[in-house]
Design a protein around this nucleic acid. Sequence first.
DNA 1: ATGCCGCCTTGATCCAGGTCAACCGCTGCT
DNA 2: AGCAGCGGTTGACCTGGATCAAGGCGGCAT
Lengths: 229, 229
Amino acid sequence: MFRQSNLGERLDSAVSCLSPAGSAPFAALVALEQIGGRRSYQQDEEIYGELDPADCWYKVVSGTVRICKLLADGRRHIAEFCFAGDCFGIDLGRERLFSAEAVGDVTVMRFPRGATERLIDEQPELARHICDMALRSLAHAQSRMLLLGRMTASERVAHFLLELAERRDARRFVDVPMSRNDIGDYLGLTIETVCRVLSSFRREGTIAIPTPHRIELCDRDALEAAGEG
Amino acid sequence: MFRQSNLGERLDSAVSCLSPAGSAPFAALVALEQIGGRRSYQQDEEIYGELDPADCWYKVVSGTVRICKLLADGRRHIAEFCFAGDCFGIDLGRERLFSAEAVGDVTVMRFPRGATERLIDEQPELARHICDMALRSLAHAQSRMLLLGRMTASERVAHFLLELAERRDARRFVDVPMSRNDIGDYLGLTIETVCRVLSSFRREGTIAIPTPHRIELCDRDALEAAGEG
DNA sequence: ATGCCGCCTTGATCCAGGTCAACCGCTGCT
DNA sequence: AGCAGCGGTTGACCTGGATCAAGGCGGCAT
C-alpha cells in the first residue's frame, strides 16, 4: 500500500506504541527526521511519567523501553515493550496515562507533538500512515487481551517467547533484555510463575536457558503448541 | 479540535471498534452517510465471522454488538461491546480476526471499504479523524489489558458496571443487554464468578438487581472504590 | 579475595476463582 | 394448566497460580 522507504527503520508500536505497516511516504519521513532530537537514558531511567504532559512522542533507536502503569497498592502492569524502530508515547490526551522507562540503556528520537501535527496538516499521507499504525497496534492489543483474559500461564509464556523471537528477528537464540519481573508484569503473572514455566519448558527440552537473558528455542513446534490450544 | 457535526451520532469504538474523539468534519461525514447501507440482524445472528473477508466496516444504529473470538477448546473472549453510535469492523488485514454478533436485535450501517478509502483520499481530514478514533480505542484497550492482567474479579465487575453506565449515559439504572456469559467472557471470568460478585455487591447494598438485565447503582462511591485500589 | 546485593530459581503452602452440580424462575409450547 | 428448556443463582469442592520463604549465583565494591 505504501511505497518502500529507504529510511530503514520501522514505525512499530502498540497502544501509544504503534506497530508497523509497510513504510510511510518517503518525503513525510524525511521531514519527520528533521524535527526529531536524539536522547539517551540509563537503565531504569524514566523517559516520562504518568501525568507528565504528553507533548512529544518517541522512536526507539537502540535498547528496550517498557510502557507501564503502577497501581496504588504496588501492582504494576506493563502495557508494551518497545524495541529498536518502535514508536511510543503517541497519546491523544494532554497527560500521560502510562509511564515509559528504559529497560537497559536506551537511545531514542524525540519528536515534538506540535511540529508533528503541523507536518500532518501539510502531508495528509502521514495521517493515513499513523492511522495504519494505530490500527495495527489495536490488533496487537486485541490479541494481548485474549492472552490476558483467557490463557494459562504456560500459554502466556510460550506466546511471549514466540513474540519476542519474531519481533527481534531471532530464529533460535532469543535475547531477553527485560527482567523476570518485567515479564511477569507484562503477562499478568508473578515472577515465580514465569520462572517455573520457563523451567518446565527447559525440563521438557522445549527451550534451553544458557543465561537468564538468553533463551534458546530448541523445539519451536512444541512452543507453538503450548502457545495456543 | 474538530467542528461539531450535527449528525448526532458518535463514531465510537475499540479495537476494530473505534472510540469517539469529538466529531469529524461535517462534509466528510455527510459523504460517508451516502455510501452506507442499512441492515438488521436478529439476536445472536453473526454479522461477520472469523476469516470472512474484511471488505467493509459498520456503525451500530441500534442494539448491541459483541466482537469476539472462539478458541479451539471452546474458550471464548469478547474483545468489545459496541452500542448505538459505535463503529466496528475497521480492520487492516484482508480477513477478519474476530467475529461480530448481535447481542439482541441489531440494526447497523454497513460501509464498503473501497469506497471509504477513496473518500479518505479525497478528504484527508477523515484519515486524521479515524486516526484519532484508533488512538482512543488504543487507550481503551490499554486500560482493559490492565484490568485483565492485574485486577481481581470484584474490581473487574465494578469497572464493567461503571463503564456500562458511562457509555450508555445512565446515572442510576443501567440496562445490561448482554448475558452473564457474555459479561464473563468480556471480563475474563466465569459466569458463576460474575453472578457471585454481583450478588455480593447486592448484599452490601452497592447495587440492586431488579431484573437480571437491569441494575441499579445504589452506591456509586462504593462501586468506584471497588473498581480501583 | 570476600562479602554484599540484586536477580533468579525452587519448594511449601494458601486462596481466589474455576469447576461441578443442584435448583430457581421465567417463558413459551402443548 | 402442565411441562420443558434456558438463563441465572447458589453451594461444595478443587486447582492453578499467588504468596511466603529459603537458597543459589554472578557482579561489583571494598
